[in-house]
Simulated scan of single mutants.
Amino acid sequence: MQLRVFTEPQQGATYDDLLAVARRAEETGFDAFFRSDHYLAMGGDGLPGPTDAWLTLAGLARETSTIRLGTLMTAGTFRLPGPLAISVAQVDQMSGGRVELGLGSGWFEAEHTAYGIPFPPLRERFDRYAEQLAVVTGLWSTPPGETFSFAGEHYAVVDSPALPKPVQPGGIPVLVGGRGKERTPALAARYAQEFNTPFASAPDAAVLFERVREACRAVDRDPADLVLSSALVLCVGADDAQLARRAAAIGRDVDELVANGVAGSPAQAVDTLGRFAEAGATRVYLQVLDLADLDHLDLVAEQVAPQLG
């Protein structure tokens, strides 16, 4: 089981806050540092204000050395697919090949209206999202010296030189996630290297994982080629008092966290992660909400990760 750190900077974080978390995650052996891609806080004032996901990751690419970096998830409504492919490939080069792209359709209407970003109806957003996946992966996979063209309803690409190229062998991994019953699993089977279930229970994750396996089989893809992962809030304490302090710091109830996240004592966290492993997950994104509490990462690295095998 791989453990990755997942942050929500729109809730209130500077670049330096994120750098501190990324460096501690790297030092303590976490597999990756990921961040959300949002421009508006979901509760609270969000001070000092949002940071751009790919600008952040470009900086971290130069200020870390081994940890993988990515988004969970970049909103397809925020960026055109061609420029997005250029930005992510450039950050991949800047990192020496450590970047992953989680791409979603976009869902939080308030942040779109707050910053003047068009927010089409759901069906159109998803149609655009499918085309974006086709364009981004098509640009990256076009052999050097050849051009890429795509004719969609929403995006048209004509004779693109399809540059720059990613540097990591096999290209930049693409993550698709969600709870959709048909289109989401089909897109994951066609375009993604990883399928993520966000904040689902282990039994629900098992159902979602089987849907994406079925979608892989429908297109003659080996389901074992697809990494299966989950995202869950993190709140672990060495004792009851520390656990209560950490839950209070993020405005959550201990019992609710234990029921729905990777939370409680280190032993409880190990048990929870074991249930997700049984459901099929080989990777879990731990949503770290208190970015000032770096000791939290130390505890997980020292008392949880070694027990996962």
Rank of each mutant, 00 (worst) to 15 (best):
A292E: 15
K181R: 14
R211K: 13
G12E: 09
A162S: 13
R246Q: 01
V91G: 05
L133S: 11
V212I: 08
E109T: 13
G70P: 11
G104W: 05
C216H: 02
E26R: 10
D37I: 05
G116M: 06
A238Q: 15
Q90K: 11
G180E: 04
G237L: 09
G12F: 08
A244Q: 14
T74W: 05
L289S: 06
P203M: 04
A249C: 02
L57A: 03
M94T: 12
A75M: 10
Q168L: 07
R62P: 07
E27Q: 15
L243W: 05
H296A: 09
R246I: 02
V91R: 05
V262Y: 05
V158T: 14
F30C: 01
N260C: 01
D293M: 04
R23M: 07
V304W: 14
D253H: 10
T197I: 01
F78Q: 13
D225Q: 15
T184C: 05
C216T: 01
D253Y: 04
A206F: 03
P81Q: 03
V167N: 07
I172E: 00
G116N: 08
A20I: 04
L80D: 13
R98P: 12
L47M: 12
A215R: 03
T184P: 08
E194Q: 12
L101I: 09
T147L: 00
A301K: 07
D240T: 10
E210G: 04
A134E: 13
Q168P: 03
A205D: 02
L297S: 03
L57E: 01
R245G: 02
Q303F: 00
Q307I: 07
I86S: 02
G82I: 14
D225I: 06
A206T: 10
G59M: 12
G138A: 00
L187S: 08
D16G: 04
D52I: 09
M1N: 09
K181G: 10
L19R: 11
F148Q: 05
A188K: 02
T113P: 08
E182D: 15
A231V: 09
S141F: 00
S95Y: 12
A130Y: 08
Y191V: 01
V212Y: 07
W54G: 11
L18F: 07
V212W: 04
